Simulated scan of single mutants.
Amino acid sequence: MLATKNRMRTSANFSHTVRSGARNGRRNVVLYMVSSSPDEPSQIGFIVAKTVGNAVTRNLVKRRLREIVVETIRQYPYGVKVVVRALPVSAEASFGDLVVDYRKAFSSVSSRLAGRNGDVARPTPALSVE
């Protein structure tokens, strides 16, 4: 479960992240990321549309994605805003497939952001997971 301070809730935050953030798409997810103030807690938002499936399926996909992003919050406790959009094929994907797609997308987006403005948050050394 994500802490309240780490949940993206307003449509303005979603819009800003999706429109001005770096993006990377994989088979199951599309990830958008922007760097924010190093004093702000990192925030994560999810977009799981009806095209993914019925309510039960969408909630399953969201629960899986929430579990996956916990690692991101541990590595980047401050300075990052991320929106994860689940694609329709994510309904049939295994947990392992979602993890692989998320990690690859996150790696690609974070390196792209670092190249763009050089101020992307660095992982907390004590909590970094290799």
Rank of each mutant, 00 (worst) to 15 (best):
I68A: 07
T51I: 00
G115L: 14
E130T: 13
T17Q: 02
S94P: 00
L31R: 01
L113C: 04
N6I: 03
H16C: 06
V82C: 01
R103D: 13
P123D: 12
V56W: 04
R9V: 09
V82Y: 00
A121Q: 10
D97C: 04
M1Q: 12
V69P: 00
N24R: 05
I44C: 10
I73C: 08
S111H: 04
R122Y: 00
Y32F: 11
R74D: 07
N28K: 05
I73Y: 01
L127F: 06
S35M: 06
S108L: 06
V34H: 02
R19I: 08
V69G: 02
V120A: 15
Y76L: 09
E92Q: 07
V56I: 11
G53H: 08
P123Q: 06
R58K: 06
P77T: 09
V34R: 07
V70M: 12
A114D: 06
M33D: 00
S94A: 06
E92L: 11
K50Y: 07
V69M: 13
N28V: 07
L31D: 03
F95L: 14
M33F: 02
V34W: 04
R7A: 03
I44V: 15
Y32E: 02
N54G: 10
P123F: 01
G25I: 05
A126K: 11
R116A: 06
G25E: 05
S11M: 01
G25Q: 14
D97L: 13
F95D: 02
R74L: 05
R26Q: 14
D39L: 15
K5G: 00
G21M: 01
Y76V: 07
V56Y: 14
S11F: 14
D97M: 06
V109W: 01
V34C: 08
P123K: 09
N59V: 13
S111I: 02
G45C: 08
A93H: 12
N13P: 00
S90E: 05
Y102M: 05
N13L: 13
D97S: 11
A55L: 12
P88A: 12
P125E: 03
L31P: 01
P88E: 10
F46W: 04
A91W: 07
R66M: 11
S110C: 08
T10C: 01
T10E: 07
K81N: 14
R26T: 14
V100E: 10
V61D: 04
T10I: 00
V30I: 15
A105K: 03
R27H: 06
T17K: 03
E71H: 13
V109C: 02
P41S: 15
T57P: 03
D39Q: 14
R27F: 05
S107G: 15
E92T: 15
E71V: 06
N117L: 02
V61A: 06
Q75E: 15
G25R: 15
A86L: 09
V120S: 11
N59K: 09
G118F: 03
P38L: 08
V69W: 04
A121K: 01
G115M: 09
D39H: 10
L113D: 02
Y76S: 08
R85N: 05
S36N: 13
V89G: 09
V89T: 14
M1C: 05
Y32T: 02
P88L: 10
V80Q: 09
M8E: 11
K104G: 04
D39M: 10
Y32I: 01
F14H: 07
T124D: 15
S111W: 12
Y32D: 02
V100T: 05
E67M: 08
I68C: 03
K62G: 05
